[in-house]
Amino acid sequence: MNATTPELRTERLHFLPYRPEHEDVFVGLLRDAEVCRWMGQDLVPEPQVRELFRAILTDVYPQRRFDVWGLWLDGTYVGHAEIKPTGNVDGHELVAALLPAHWGRGLGGEAVRGLLRHAADDLGLTEAYGMVGAENTASLALSRRLGFRHVKDVVGDDGSVTRMLVISTGAGEPGADGPPAGAVRAADPV
C-alpha cells in the first residue's frame, strides 16, 4: 500500500484504523469461537491475539504492509476488515469478520462493498479475492449473489476445504459505475 490506512465510510459503517484503545474489542472478536470457526482459524490464546493487535500498530501500519480497520456502527465496534496481499495467488484478499450479535443485518455485504470501493478507487486493484470455508454456506450464498466467482478449492492439512473466490472491482473498466458488491472470508453467516 502506498499510503497510510484511511478512514472509510459506507451507509452505516465507519472503517477506522485501529488505535491502542481498541485492543480489548479486537481481542474479543478474535477470541469468539463462532467467529474463528467461520473464519477457518483456530481459537488462539489471548496473549497471542494481543500480540497480533500490537503488531498491527507497530509493524503493519508503520511499514504500510496492508490496510486494516475496526468496523464501527453508531460508535459500537462490530468487526474487522482488511485488504492484504494473499499468499494463495498473485493478488489481494478482502477479509471481513463481524461479531455474532451483528450477523444477519447486511453488514458483511456492506463492509465488502466498502472494501471493493477502496480497492478500486484508492488502490487501483482490478480484482480481489476472498477465502470462504466450504461449510460457510450463508457466506458462500451471499458471495454468489454479489458477484464472486469460484476459482478453486484449497484443501488444508486437516482436510478442511476453503473456497477461493474472485471478483472484479470495476476499476479501469469503461463505463463502470464502481465495484460490484461482494462477500469474503466473513464471520457473518447471514
Results as ranks from 00 to 15, higher is better:
Met1Asn: 12
Met1Leu: 14
Asn2Val: 09
Ala3Asp: 15
Pro6Phe: 10
Glu7His: 10
Arg9Tyr: 12
Glu11Gly: 14
Phe15Arg: 04
Tyr18Thr: 06
Pro20Thr: 14
Glu23Cys: 13
Phe26Met: 02
Leu29Ala: 04
Arg31Ile: 00
Ala33His: 08
Val35Glu: 00
Val35Phe: 01
Val35Thr: 02
Cys36Trp: 00
Cys36Asp: 03
Arg37Lys: 04
Arg37Trp: 01
Met39Trp: 07
Asp42Phe: 09
Glu46Leu: 07
Arg50Phe: 09
Glu51Gln: 06
Phe53Asp: 02
Ala55Pro: 03
Tyr61Asp: 06
Arg64Pro: 00
Phe66Pro: 03
Gly70Met: 02
Trp72Phe: 15
Asp74Trp: 09
Thr76Ser: 13
His80Trp: 07
Ala81Ser: 11
Ala81Asn: 01
Glu82Asn: 07
Pro85Asn: 03
Thr86Gln: 10
Thr86Ser: 15
Gly87Ile: 07
Asn88Pro: 01
Val89Ser: 13
His92Ile: 00
His92Pro: 00
Glu93Pro: 00
Ala96Lys: 01
Leu98Ser: 06
Leu99Lys: 15
Pro100Leu: 05
His102Pro: 00
Arg105Trp: 03
Leu107Pro: 09
Arg113Thr: 12
Gly114Ile: 00
Leu116Glu: 08
Leu116Asp: 06
Ala120Glu: 08
Asp121Pro: 06
Asp122Ala: 10
Leu123Glu: 03
Gly124Val: 01
Thr126Glu: 15
Thr126Leu: 07
Ala128Glu: 04
Tyr129Gln: 09
Gly130Ile: 00
Ala134Met: 04
Thr137Phe: 11
Thr137Val: 11
Leu140Asn: 02
Ser143Trp: 03
Gly147Gln: 00
Gly147Phe: 01
Phe148Met: 11
Val151Tyr: 10
Gly156Gln: 11
Asp157Ile: 10
Asp158Cys: 03
Val161Ala: 06
Met164Trp: 11
Met164Phe: 15
Ile167Glu: 11
Ile167Phe: 07
Ser168Gly: 14
Pro174Ala: 01
Pro180Glu: 08
Pro180Val: 12
Ala181Asn: 07
Gly182Leu: 13
Ala183Leu: 13
Val190Ile: 12
